[in-house]
Nucleic acid binder design. Structure first.
Lengths: 177, 177
DNA sequence: ATGATATGTCAGCATGACTGACCAGTTCGG
DNA sequence: CCGAACTGGTCAGTCATGCTGACATATCAT
């Protein structure tokens, strides 16, 4: 089914190599499932105290990372519909965690910023995840950081990588004021 | 907030190192989010043709990996309630992808097995994920496989690692017949 | 016989996706 | 200047997948 990286193309040695990689790939599938689940468990617990969910965390995270983000930007990053976003965004604004400012150049656009409360909530949510990442990097060996990033990055599809790239570019060229 | 691995404890050099790791951790958060989302996109597309969802995929995956698994085992692995599992499990059984056999030693227990159709669906679902993992490993350098596994494994909480360990032990000691 | 265990099921709830439709304000091109 | 296109907000309804609580049935263990 899946061909092993650098598998020898000779008879039963090839078969063994293929089987070895099949097991590794299955392991990887499971590891990703469990790791992602436990990675989100920490913030989820905090969020439930606020009546928020994972979706709120994502919005807080990306607004924190790219202050002044527009609603359209956020929709593209998250890959959800505006109706889905509107629900959580409205709750975050009502709760005073996010502020909207009208873009002076194009008054249709709303730039999103975290309030002080929003910043501190975002920080609190990130804390358990940072701790996990730090521990995991230690376990893996910090010298493998680049390889791990390369691995995860390559798992993101073309569009996603482009979306991230576009944002980084947008950030370099503030253009707002 | 988070202390950088092996950060020097001396003044502004320390500050720079901390800032560097803060950015890396934020990147990691995003990479995990995007990677997991795109990782599941492939199977999700296939599943929707069958009227199934991600939950069905998980069940198929784990029954494939540990044939003869009991319902209680599955509940522990997935960390969901039996009512939630029952819904998807029933659909998979009705659709002829999973078979139940009564354990001869303890007739209360139901051992779960994939049918031929179940096996082939499970294989089809895994194919896009294996392809992604293979590409990602190539991009990261296959020599970093162990480090990546160590990283992901460390992100799983104690209970999860124990549950995986328990299953591996269960597999070594078939005990059923 | 009795209590514990493994499984199944009913009924209802919440979250966070989705679709489709529509409105208001703003910008831009001809 | 006007109409088309764009940005954002909203209403109404659906679906998948988690949850709780209650209860039934078969089986096992003491």
């Amino acid at each position: 089914m899946a061909k092993a990286p650098s598998a020898a193309e000779n008879g039963s040695a090839e078969k063994n190599a293929a089987a070895k990689w099949a097991v590794r790939y299955s392991n990887m599938q499971e590891l990703l499932f469990f790791a992602y689940r436990d990675f989100t468990a920490g913030p989820d617990a905090i969020l439930s105290d606020y009546g928020f969910g994972r979706a709120h965390h994502r919005v807080l995270h990306f607004v924190h990372r790219w202050p002044g983000l527009t609603v359209a930007d956020l929709l593209e990053i998250l890959g959800i519909t505006k109706q889905s976003l509107a629900r959580v965004l409205k709750q975050l604004i009502d709760a005073g965690h996010i502020e909207q400012k009208t873009n002076v150049r194009d008054r249709r656009q709303r730039e999103l910023y975290l309030t002080k409360e929003g910043e501190s909530l975002a920080a609190a949510l990130s804390a358990p995840q940072w701790r996990l990442i730090e521990e995991a990097l230690q376990a893996a060996g910090t010298e493998h950081y680049d390889a791990i990033v390369a691995f995860l990055r390559r798992m993101i599809d073309e569009d996603g990588r482009l979306a991230i790239g576009a944002l980084e570019e947008h950030r370099r060229r503030p253009e707002g004021d």
